[in-house]
Every structure is written in structure tokens, then in C-alpha cells.
Design a protein around this nucleic acid. Structure first.
Length: 394
RNA sequence: GGAGGGAUACCCAAGCGGCCAAAGGGGGCAGACUGUAAAUCUGUUGGCGACGCCUUCGAAGGUUCGAAUCCUUCUCCCUCCA
């Protein structure tokens, strides 16, 4: 129970979960833990892993994870809301995304205890009678309890009938699955509870809703998301990951430890109080955090290497060893263009700006001239973290 | 169905015939300080081998030597009335 509690934002109702766990232990029957996935975003980042980690913990104590890929909604397209019409996905796209998902998700989950479903399996088969039957089990008033519906209704903004159906579809997945527990972010609370109610309506044992907090991104304010550019992807390079973790604000350190690592809570608490008392530099705690995270998605060795390189580049302001080479044939170059061609800046105008602002270094010396004669093994640096090394082709 | 108001760069928001590649703020990027933290200060924020040229102010036309600014049509959004 303590394991399950860690990091959880809310468990509804907690008492029932205890009973289910107890019963499971007694009769050796694993619980069915559900998580729904959107088939449109195949790039998993640490924000997603908050929930995945919790699933993993369930697996570790013997339970069974059921992932539902929401290919049905993805395939019919969601015409709702202001956000421009979501594009319909073809079957191939859905499958391709699902494959990517698996590859990334199994960095956290145990494949042996994971079962993947597609909700089109049952939703596609329903006819209008079935749909009405489902819809008849819920009322508009209850649907309007949901925050964003309530708000829109009050403000006289449009709510599509089909939008009212989405929670029902998701909830129906739980019915089909006979889910014991459904996980989701706190933003999913309403949907998870609809699932619970529908199960009751259909005469099954209702699921427990377990909400995990929404993780803040590296900026420390907004939720982690790819479009905001404040994410750390599970497929990120080890060194990159290290840098991103190091750039999070101090206020997030403990949270990240709790939600993203397997470090025991007592240890985290010790670190926290040590930081508060000033006995330990938050930076060093962050280094530990970064190593834990990288070890989870790469390995210990990579983590150590990343740390070493990080210290070299940032603490000692030195040039790292393993810089990518660019092969060139012309020795005399106009730097703004050269930087652009090698992906160091977006445009030559930006390149010029960078030079003016003193952001460009050649062999660790600030470069002020736009023209440059390249030499073998010359190291060109943009900003703090972008390096390339010159190799001349004859 | 009728009457008004609006659409400006990544976001918010000024501009209302030339001085507008477009004020200000936010965000981003870079520099200083640092611990690639926070806070602070500074610079920068369409493209182009560039004291000039090209594309941008919802879309398409038009007036004018000259338009983000005026006119016409269209699209979308908001407010009020029915």
C-alpha cells in the first residue's frame, strides 16, 4: 500500500483499493490495471512516465497491466473544440504509432505482465442501439459536472454532443476490460470516475480511480509537453538528458525524485532536509537525480559518462572529447552560412547575431570576425552546448 | 434574421496614409553573474553575403507616387437585439 501511495495525487476510493489488494493476495488473482493511451503522440517523455512508473509498481507486486490504445477515436477523428480538427489516422498510422509506443513503454513496463488492447476492437462493432443503450446509462446533468463542460455551458460556449460521448467511450473501455483500477493524470479524474459508474451500471465491480500528478517541465512552471519544448524524452541521448535534468529549478528536485526514480522515500526526505539546512548543494542532489534517471533509460555506465562530460564542459568550461565532426572541402567560409549549414543556427541572420553577441567560440576563443579560415580539428562552439569539430577532406 | 466590435510577428497588445520589419510586455535565444537553479542586469528576437533588397499586419481585389493604416468583397471570432 505504501508503494502505491507514493506520489499518487488521489485514490478514489482508497478503502476499496485496500480490499481489492487484500483479496488479490488471498486468492492469488492479479488485479487488472488499466491505462488508456492516445494514439497520436508516440513520443514518450518523463511526464508520461509518472503514470507508467506507477503501473510498473503494480506489476512489481504481481498485478497485470492492460494498455488501451484509443485507436477508435483516433481513426474517426475528433472534430471537437477550438484546437484545429484532429486529423484522422489510418490503420497503418495507428499501428506504426502503437509499435513506437511499445518500444518506449517497455523501458518502464514489464512486457510479460502487459497486455495491449485497441478499443476499436469493441467500439467499432457497436451499432446505434448499443450506443443509445450506453448513453442511456448516463445523464446530461452528471456529464455537466465535469469542469470544462460546466464552464463552457455556463459561458454559453458550444459543447458538441459527440464530446459528451468521449467520456462514455473511455468509460466503456473499463467495462469491457473489467478493470480493477484505472490510472491517469489528475486531469483525467472525471473520465476515470465515469468508467467507475458505468461499470456499476453494467453490473460489474467498479474500478478504483488512481490519479497521478501532472509533472512540470524543465521550466518548472508549465506541464511537461513536447509542444512547449520543456520535455525530457525517454529516447533522449544520455548527455542531453543529463543537461536537461540539471536545468530544472531547485524547487522541482524532490518532486522529480519522488515521481521519476525508485529512490526510497526516506532517502529523498533526508536529501530534502539536508538541502534545506544548506548541508548539501542542491546542484549535487540534481546530479544524483540525473544519474538515476539516465540509468533507468540508458544504463549506469552512460550515466557516469554523461556526468563526467557535463562536469568537464560546464564546471570546468572545457571542450568535451567526443564532438561530432563536420567534413568540409572549402577552408575559407563565411561563418553565419557555415553555422546554418551545419545546423548550429536556424538562419544566417541568426548566425550573424550570435557572432555579434559573442556566442561563438573557435578553439575556445571568442570569434568576432564573420569570415574564418578553417583548420583541421578546429572546434567551433555556439552558445554553451553546441560543438562541432572540423575535418578537412582533400 | 437585425445592429455593432474585432482579426497585427511564438503569445498578449499598440499603431489607424509615408519617419513601420512594425511601440510595449511575456516567452525564446545569447552575454554577465552562477550551480546549464532561482533572482538580477545587458543585448537580441522575419529572411537574404545585407547601410541595400525580398516576404510579412485574416484572404482576395481596388484607390494612391506610397497602405498594417482608406474602399469593396469574402472567411472566421466576439457583444447586443430577435
Amino acid at each position: 500500500m505504501e508503494i502505491i501511495h507514493r506520489g499518487a495525487a488521489e485514490i478514489v476510493p482508497e478503502e476499496e483499493l485496500k480490499q481489492k489488494l487484500y483479496r488479490s493476495i488471498k486468492n492469488g488473482q492479479p488485479l487488472r490495471i488499466k491505462l488508456g493511451l492516445d494514439p497520436t503522440a508516440p513520443d514518450i517523455h518523463l511526464g508520461h512516465t509518472v503514470v507508467l512508473n506507477k503501473l510498473r509498481q503494480f506489476q512489481d507486486i504481481g498485478h497485470e497491466v492492460h494498455l488501451i490504445i484509443g485507436d477508435f477515436t483516433g481513426r474517426i477523428g475528433d472534430p471537437s473544440g477550438k484546437s484545429e480538427t484532429r486529423k484522422q489516422l489510418t490503420e497503418e498510422e495507428v499501428n506504426a504509432n502503437a509499435a513506437t509506443y511499445k518500444e518506449q513503454i517497455f523501458k518502464v513496463l514489464d512486457p510479460k505482465k502487459t497486455i495491449i488492447h485497441f478499443n476499436s476492437q469493441w467500439l467499432m462493432k457497436m451499432n446505434f442501439v448499443d450506443v443509445l443503450n450506453l448513453a442511456g446509462r448516463y445523464t446530461v446533468a452528471r456529464m455537466l459536472e465535469r469542469d470544462d463542460f460546466a464552464k463552457r455551458y455556463k459561458e454559453g460556449l458550444p459543447i458538441g454532443i459527440h464530446e459528451l460521448m468521449y467520456p462514455l467511450m473511455q468509460g466503456y473501455d473499463s467495462v469491457e476490460l473489467r478493470a480493477d483500477v484505472e490510472l491517469g493524470g489528475t486531469d483525467q479524474k472525471f473520465n476515470l470516475l465515469v468508467g467507475r459508474n458505468l461499470q456499476k451500471e453494467y453490473g460489474f465491480e467498479p474500478q478504483i480511480a488512481l490519479m497521478m500528478p501532472i509533472l512540470e517541465g524543465t521550466d518548472g512552471v508549465q506541464k511537461m509537453s513536447k509542444s512547449l519544448g520543456n520535455y525530457i524524452g525517454v529516447n533522449d541521448e544520455a548527455y542531453d538528458m543529463f543537461g536537461k535534468v540539471m536545468s530544472i529549478p531547485d524547487s522541482l528536485i524532490v518532486r522529480y525524485f519522488e515521481l521519476l526514480t525508485r529512490v526510497p522515500m526516506e532517502e529523498i526526505k533526508t536529501l530534502q532536509s539536508a538541502m534545506e539546512k544548506g548541508e548539501i548543494n542542491p546542484r549535487d542532489v540534481k546530479i544524483r537525480l540525473a544519474k538515476h534517471i539516465i540509468a533507468a533509460y540508458h544504463n549506469e555506465e552512460e550515466a557516469a559518462k554523461a556526468e563526467e562530460r557535463f562536469k568537464l564542459v560546464f564546471s570546468q568550461r572545457d571542450i568535451p572529447e567526443d564532438i561530432p565532426f563536420v567534413q568540409i572541402t572549402e577552408r575559407e567560409v563565411w561563418l553565419p552560412k557555415f553555422l546554418q549549414e551545419n545546423g548550429m543556427v536556424d538562419s544566417s541572420s541568426e548566425g550573424k547575431r550570435m557572432i555579434q553577441q559573442g556566442a561563438i567560440k573557435v578553439n575556445a576563443v571568442k570569434q568576432v570576425d564573420e569570415n574564418l579560415v578553417l583548420e583541421e580539428n578546429m572546434v567551433i562552439q555556439v552558445g554553451k552546448r553546441k560543438f562541432i569539430k572540423v575535418r578537412i577532406l582533400v
